[in-house]
Design a protein around this nucleic acid. Sequence first.
RNA 1: GGCCCCAUAGUCUAGCGGUUAGGACGUCGGCCUCUCACGCCGAAAUCCGGGGUUCAAUUCCCCGUGGGGUCACCA
Length: 488
Amino acid sequence: MSQKEVRVRIAPSPTGDPHVGTAYVALFNYAFARRHGGKFILRIEDTDRARSTTASEEAIIRALRWLGLDWDEGPDKGGPHGPYRQSERGTIYREHAEMLIERGHAYRCFCTPERLAELRGEQQKAKASKMGYDGKCRSLSPEEADERGRGGESFTVRLKMPQEGETVLLDGLRGEIRIPNEQSDDQVLLKSDGMPTYHLANVVDDHLMGISHVIRAEEWISSAPKHLRLYEAFGWEPATFLHLPLLRNNDKNKSKISKRRNPVSLDYYRDTGIIPEAMVNFLALMGWSYGEDQEKFSLEQMVERFDLKEGSVSLSGPVFDLDKLSWLNGLYMRELSDEGLVDALMGWRVNRDYLLRLAPLVRDRIQRFDEFLPLISYCFSGDIDYTPVAALLLPKKRKGGETGKMLERLLDKLDAMPAFEVSAMEETFRLFCEGEEWSTREVFMTVRVGLTGRKASPGLFETMEVIGRELTRRRLRLAANFLKQYKG
RNA sequence: GGCCCCAUAGUCUAGCGGUUAGGACGUCGGCCUCUCACGCCGAAAUCCGGGGUUCAAUUCCCCGUGGGGUCACCA
């Protein structure tokens, strides 16, 4: 394992915002590759056809570039092991699944989603210690399975997992991890739409792309036995696995970082004026330390000292602390010259393009230039203090608790919107109010104050569009939290 | 619930058998100063509990406890 060229990858799924966790794992992969003179590869895991979008893929690529974590091979720049987008590798997976069936390591499963849901329901109800697929189709004869498959019956392909014994995972950061095989059920490899699941695609691609080290998040540990089993079934030498800790929310329990509790989109950090170098520096501090009590360092400096072995990463889940990020960002900011700062601001929002978006919202509402910036100052400011405007945020005859919860339900609706633009938002809002015991008047005012801190503003939806999805989510989330605690 | 991972101040971490347990964010106090910020100085605050091993445990082992993850035709 030591002689092999280091080849690592980041494999995001383009199903949403460019996630801060993706950046975190990407950074550690990147630093490891650079440190060992290896290659860093970007692979898009878009096998979930229902949820993957090209917009998300583009956003992820843009965000990783913004951070300066550039890759050697990827869907945008090609490479010797392409394509690097899994949706374009369908036949490869199907051939490999077929190979496993022929070798008796996998089988066709004709169980319907309904049956599986029922099974799951029963297991939950019975509080069964062993959850997962019961292996019903495992005992089908290959002849019968072939025939039913040819007959057009819908099927998935499942991996035959050993049902006894244990799998030993040698984690590069954690040492030996032993997992009883009875914990792993017969995982679906190929979905009925012919697309692979993560498990198959991941192992096949990692092997075909020559990945030497799989550096991924801790949440994958429990499915690692399935991946190891796949390498074995194919007769391949497995990569070395290293499981990084999960980033955590700043809440009581330190749960896995999530957008309900913490901004997770890299776009949020960009939109609030975080300098990419500071972001990278901060992410590096999560679990790793530069040494000599030094907190501030560049990517290049990190690469010089970085390595991954037992003891080199703190394995307890680090809480993502916005205050410390801001402090670090301030350090970077103060290093800029006046000119550099102005350039940075112009790259952010203080520019013609952005002002042009504000102009139509403001022009009818002002009489003099000097009213322009004050009127839309909240487009350039951070979190809003709701204390002085609490009476405006809370509709008359309403309680803080119920209003906060209403906002949370509304946020779920907003999160479900594919595009964040005026007409769609208005429709979402009006539909929402119809289904709720809330008047548009109440909802709109609460949202307006939540977004702007004021009772008067340009059009609500125009405002949301212009400040963007990330700031909208953040402010409404904070407003909801404020309301839930508000006694008055 | 089964299995797995983790455990140094509120937070991020250093430590790798013998330390006054180091640094950073945050908090509090002071200095600087027209104010604020920056900067500087200082303070409070930490080894989850119990057993071992050892002359000696924050450090090694075990058991608890706590937290997290995972148990999808999502990744």
